[in-house]
């Protein structure tokens, strides 16, 4: 037994190279540098569902670190039209996070919608598209698309539908959702203004007796003002948000798109 711990090879008998393991791994003090496949390209998105419309919005700044790579990089994409220009599309996808993953995700979903139309001869419903998007994201569970997606459209009854996702495919249908860099700034504002959180009927009592303000669906003009205000606020407080505001409104007539200026500082 003592021989095992002896430094003298003669006591162990001669050793032979029967071990195929490489002799040394890395030189002393060398650090393994690994390629990081992700970056955050900043920006923010927002979606609000109305009674018979859905408003989607996103800023158009693309950053890397403190640099502005582009002042006009759309984050909203029409999905599932018959042609490449998406003239007749009825679904909108917004992606924010790592731009290359977002782009790949959008193209994947659009291709799937195109194949669906080819096979079934009809466009995909928002509900089906939303479920499929979740599957796409989850399929890459162990090398995720680093993208916060929001899908907007009109459901089978013609009501506004907003589906929000985390990068690995967990999703739910909501009334409104903010995503991306300024999500934490915009979301509380939406809670208050869209879902009337912390709004009570005046003089309705104190403490638990307080009555919540009754929720009602917002009109399109109200929502459009909310969106602009939300982004003006986000631009003031977040350096990765700014330059332009891309808004898409989905109604039964189709998708209207507008581009508004935001502060470029």
């Amino acid at each position: 037994m003592a021989a095992m711990f002896s430094q003298n090879p003669l006591m162990n008998g001669p050793n032979y190279s029967v071990n195929d393991a490489p002799r040394a791994t890395a030189p002393e003090g060398a650090r393994q540098h690994r390629f990081d496949p992700y970056t955050d390209n900043g920006g923010s998105t927002l979606a609000i569902a109305g009674a018979e419309f859905t408003v989607m919005a996103g800023d158009t700044r693309l950053t890397s670190g403190y640099s502005i790579n582009s002042r006009h990089h759309p984050k909203l994409f029409k999905i599932g039209g018959t042609t490449a220009d998406q003239k007749d599309a009825t679904i909108v996808l917004s992606v924010v996070g790592f731009a290359a993953d977002g782009e790949a995700l959008k193209e994947r979903l659009d291709t799937i919608c195109k194949m669906y139309r080819y096979r079934h001869g009809k466009p995909m419903s928002v509900k089906a598209c939303a479920q499929r998007l979740s599957t796409i994201l989850y399929q890459k569970r162990f090398f995720p698309y680093y993208a916060y997606a929001i899908l907007g459209g009109l459901d089978e009854e013609g009501k506004g539908a907003v589906y929000s996702y985390d990068p690995v495919g967990s999703y739910e249908r909501e009334q409104c959702r903010a995503g991306g860099a300024a999500a934490s700034l915009i979301m509380p504002f939406l809670d208050n203004q869209v879902n009337f959180k912390n709004q009570y009927v005046p003089n309705s009592g104190e403490g638990h007796a307080l009555q919540e303000r009754e929720r009602r669906p917002l009109s399109r003009s109200e929502v459009e003002v909310l969106v602009k205000d939300a982004f003006d606020g986000a631009v003031e407080r977040h350096i990765e948000v700014g330059d332009g505001l891309q808004i898409m409104v989905i109604t039964k007539e189709g998708v209207e798109e507008v581009l508004l200026p935001l502060k470029k500082d």
Binding site: P9, G13, P14, N15, Y16, S17, N19, A21, R23
Partner: peptide, 20 residues
């Protein structure tokens, strides 16, 4: 040495461990 896998191999104490 009675281990067949060692036959024909250079000895470590003479040549150093073999880099495979």
């Amino acid at each position: 040495d009675h281990r067949p896998q060692a036959w024909g191999r250079p000895r470590d104490d003479v040549y150093g461990a073999y880099d495979a």
